[in-house]
Every structure is written in C-alpha cells, then in structure tokens.
Amino acid sequence: MATGAILAVLATSACARANPSVVAYVGSDGRVTQSELDTAVSGISQTLQPGQSVQESAVVNALIHGEIAQQVAAANNITITDADRDKLLKGSNLAPLLNIPDAKAVAYDVADAQLVPAKVGSDAYLKAVQSTPVELNPRYGQLNPEDRTIVDGSTGSLSTPAPAAGG
C-alpha cells in the first residue's frame, strides 16, 4: 500500500511542471510561455516577404537562449541595455524586428545571447549554458544537451521559404 502511495506522489510531482501553456522551463525559475511564443511568431510574421514562413523551432531556441543569457547576466552582475541591443542589431537581418513590438523581444533575446558571452567570455558562457537545466515541452521536440537547441534539422534562421503550392 505504501509503495502505491509513493508511486502516486512521484507520478504527480513529475507532472508538476508539465503545464501545457509553458514551452520550456529554463533554470530554476525561468520559463518561456506559449503566449510569448505566439506573440513572437505573430510579430516576426509581419516582417516576412511573401513565400516565407516563421521557423517556430528557431523562435523557441531564441527565446530559451535569451532567458539563459538573462540568467547568466544576472548571476554575473552584467547589465545589457536596450541601446546595447539596438547597436548590435542595427544593420543586421534582424533589424526589421525592432520596428514590430511583438517581434522586438525575440530580437533582443538573440542580441542578449551574443552580448552576454562577449562580457563573460565564450568558454564561461558555454559552461553556463550547458549547466542550465532546460525542460522543453515534448511537443516542440528534444534539446541537444550540449548547446540547448532543439534537435530538428533546422538552420536556426527565424524564417524559411514556404512550401511550394500544390506540393
């Protein structure tokens, strides 16, 4: 009888963080929500050319790595300003995202994932990424344990050409 009770507790505790509205839990208290993902995808979609579509896994990767970068920055007392982010993104292929409020956050996440390693050093940052626990909602795939990116064969680009009509 006691074994059954213990198994029931273990089963429910394993599901405690299995909230369908959470795309990923990052670190001890960070999370990427479905709402954040939907907002980012909608915003990025506004910047695409006809025939392009948003690569959702790349957006999830950017949001996860933005959260990791923010946690590493906080742990190292590093401040990254919007001006720092804007300067990095100016002239890049992500610059158009800065003009769309719903896309700006994901552009800033990408910037943070570049700015923070420059401040702490790439080796220290990679170690921090590898030691940050990330629980990805299984409906988005699996994470590579080395770099905490979704294993799906995508390029990492936020957009891809849409499938050809009729095929």
Rank of each mutant, 00 (worst) to 15 (best):
A95V: 08
R85N: 13
A111E: 04
S92Q: 03
D112T: 03
A107I: 07
L97A: 00
D102G: 05
L88V: 02
L89M: 04
I100W: 06
A83D: 15
R85K: 15
L94M: 10
D82G: 11
P96W: 07
A113N: 08
N93C: 03
A113W: 02
K87V: 14
L89Q: 02
P96Q: 08
V110G: 00
N99H: 06
P101E: 05
D82K: 09
V110I: 11
V106E: 04
L115G: 08
L97C: 00
P101A: 08
N99F: 05
K87W: 03
T81D: 09
T79R: 11
A113V: 03
D86Y: 05
V116L: 07
L98G: 07
D112C: 03
Q114V: 14
T79D: 08
A107M: 10
Y108H: 15
V106I: 10
V106A: 10
A83T: 13
Y108D: 15
Q114T: 13
T79Y: 04
I80A: 13
I100G: 06
L98S: 08
L88E: 02
I100S: 10
A95P: 09
T81R: 08
Y108K: 06
L115M: 13
L94S: 01
T81A: 03
Y108E: 13
P101Y: 04
A95Q: 13
Q114I: 12
K87M: 11
P101G: 05
L88G: 02
T81Q: 10
P96D: 09
A105W: 06
K87Q: 14
L88D: 01
A83K: 11
Q114S: 14
T81F: 06
V106P: 04
R85E: 15
K87T: 15
D102E: 15
V116E: 07
L88I: 02
D82N: 13
S92G: 00
L98Y: 08
T79P: 00
D112L: 14
K104S: 12
A103R: 04
A103K: 08
V110E: 00
T81K: 07
D112W: 09
D86L: 06
A83V: 13
I80K: 12
D102M: 10
L97G: 01
A105K: 15
A103H: 07
V116P: 04
T79M: 06
A83I: 15
D82Y: 13
V106M: 07
Q114E: 14
A111R: 03
L94R: 00
A95N: 11
A107V: 06
L115A: 09
I80T: 14
L94N: 03
S92Y: 01
I80N: 11
D84A: 06
L94A: 03
T81N: 09
V110H: 05
L97F: 03
K90L: 11
D86K: 09
D84F: 01
L115I: 14
Y108V: 12
L98T: 08
V116M: 09
K87R: 14
R85C: 15
Q114W: 09
A113S: 13
T79G: 05
L94W: 00
I80E: 09
V116A: 09
A105C: 10
